[in-house]
Design a protein around this nucleic acid. Structure first.
Lengths: 341, 341
DNA sequence: GAGGGCGGTGTAAACCCTTTCATCGCGCCC
DNA sequence: GGGCGCGATGAAAGGGTTTACACCGCCCTC
């Protein structure tokens, strides 16, 4: 009977050479613990048989997977930038990074969370602006896995965090519009109900207005969902509602593009009639016409630093509890002085 | 001495109840093989102790991980769409999908490939338009893991494939421009050196011109890298070089946006002076001003079908060797009749 | 020449789970 | 009342690797 053609294991390699599996394992993992000759023979046999170690077995034994997950609420270019940074750091640290999305769906969050709790990954980078990984936070008796929170602090646990100061970023933006001469400055907020980030940006907006003694336009309702379409709709509503603002600060770039489209659709011009400013510095804003003035949130940098901290956590090294990365105003073509010179 | 506080295992649960680990395992995995009472007790203890099964151990035993990888050459919104489709299909099939990027870096491709070969995942969806997962394809004696190729067939192995007919898509685009009255139709190709997809689109362009007895502009060199910047540069070169075309067919949407920017920068208007058409139907084109006329490649659909096929492969069921998904012209504002009416 | 150190190798346990096979008790049937 | 089937459980093997420990020559030293 023909031997069934399964994948070769370390035992097959050992048998082919008349060695023990321990020696083969050592030849591969700790080259200097075996003779040069043995190592050469092992490598040859490995090549010849097409042997690959079973990572599952290895991880099970070592109790470490060298894999980390990045968990993001949805598919968005912005989160991709964060991922990019994580990936870059991880590579230098010998980790593999894998990406999962929750779609703000509790069940899916649970599942990803369980993957880590169940040893499929060593740690987790939560790129979220919303809620806990489980509907109700777990009982404290159940230890959390190693987690670093990127972008925005979470309120359901005290975790190491790399974030931007979204409140200050928003305030800077509005201050900038003010410095251009604008006094009627509206705001299109994000999903303030679910996103602390959106709330912080709203707060920054209010704080800036207050600092300049201006009236804020608070008739905007719940805000958009950080998507282009909701930005469009919000701007449309804004144009129909009351006195037209001369400038709009929008809670992220994507909604800002939507807002510009709505303004154009209404037969107005940006920045001639209305200045528009976003936050994030996403690609879509950089290449739009007019190119979007925005506040840059260094997504890749946030990802990179998060991974570095997660590495320290996993190694039991001391780490910074909270890192706040700086934001920066990027002036492009969607804003202009008021009144127009 | 205090017992070290490691994660509870199935043994801990069993001991806490005076049951055997077999029963606990069954209570969790095959609920109807145990008494109602036993199951209730087990679930209670699991909850109380915070037990989570170790997926590594489970997979090792079962020889199946229920994880598949999506491997893409780079981070791009287009690949995200494919991923989205894969993810959706996978969810209904009980698989977890994880995403990895190669950056066209042979070493990284190897690493991801090894993850699958090493049992960390059951299969692979290769979203690639470029080369084999290893610098030189492996010896045929070394079996390939289950792979489905999405988007574009590969030439180094005979693998199940879900693809669009890029050649026909390009031909359709040029035919459409022809039907608008354009005769001087230029092409900005993708990286024809490394991407069969770029080559196919170039071929479609040539075929269309030939069918209409037109001269093709072949002075474009190696083409862009499917990025906005290279599209900009290519268009700039095109404008400086010879007689100005009345229409440009660009090998993907991102480069097409770059091309439009270059045209605008040169003081010309789209589509008034030059019509521009892309391929893919990416978001960036949909929301641009002018909105981009393009040929839609149903990325999510490709991803979905790829995953379905991979599932069949993994189950040993029969599957379609090659699926060709239809493309579709989407007319927006970046194209106009010539001469202008 | 006996003891000690040392480099290289083998043996076997451990990692945590699933699953086959055996066991056991119980009710049922003739 | 004995055999049988059946449902629930337990014992143990097995999955592929790493690694602590034991072993075995060998050379060196006194």
């Amino acid at each position: 009977m023909v031997k069934t053609n399964r994948r070769p294991t370390i035992t097959d390699v050992a048998n082919a050479l008349g060695l023990s599996i321990a020696t083969v394992s050592r030849a591969l993992a700790k080259p200097d613990m075996v003779t040069d000759e043995t190592r050469a023979r092992v490598l040859e046999a490995v090549e010849r048989l097409g042997y690959r170690p079973n990572l599952l077995a290895r991880d099970l034994r070592r109790q470490v997977s060298k894999v980390v997950f990045v968990v993001a609420p949805r598919l968005s270019p912005f989160f991709l930038d964060v991922f990019q940074g994580v990936d870059q750091a991880a590579r230098t640290m010998g980790y593999t990074v894998l990406l999962g999305f929750t779609d703000r769906n509790g069940e899916r969050e649970e599942a990803l969370y369980d993957q880590v709790l169940s040893n499929r990954a060593d740690g987790l980078i939560l790129v979220t602006s919303s809620r806990a990984p489980s509907p109700e936070p777990r009982k404290p008796s159940h230890r959390l896995p190693p987690i670093v929170v990127a972008l925005e602090a979470v309120d359901w646990a005290n975790l190491p965090t790399v974030r931007a100061d979204h409140r200050a970023a928003a305030k800077d933006a509005v201050d900038y519009l003010y410095s251009l001469g604008h006094r009627a400055i509206a705001h299109i907020p994000g999903p303030v109900g679910t996103s602390p980030m959106a709330r912080n940006r709203l707060e920054g907006y209010r704080a800036a207005l207050a600092a300049h003694g201006l009236q804020s336009s608070e008739r905007l309702g719940e805000g958009g969902q950080f998507t282009l379409e909701t930005g469009y709709a919000a701007m449309q509503a804004l144009l129909q509602e009351g006195p037209r603002p001369t400038a709009v600060f929008v809670a992220n770039d994507e909604m800002a593009i939507g807002a510009i489209q709505a303004i154009k659709a209404a037969g107005l011009r940006v920045p001639h009639d209305i200045s528009v400013m976003g936050v994030d510095d996403q690609r879509i804003g950089r290449s739009y016409d007019p190119a979007l003035t925005t506040v840059r949130v260094p997504a890749a940098d946030i990802g990179y630093r998060s991974m570095v901290i997660l590495g320290k956590v996993l190694n039991g090294e001391p780490y910074e509890e909270t890192v706040v990365v700086p934001t920066e105003i990027i002036v492009r073509q969607s804003t202009a002085p008021y009144p127009a010179p």
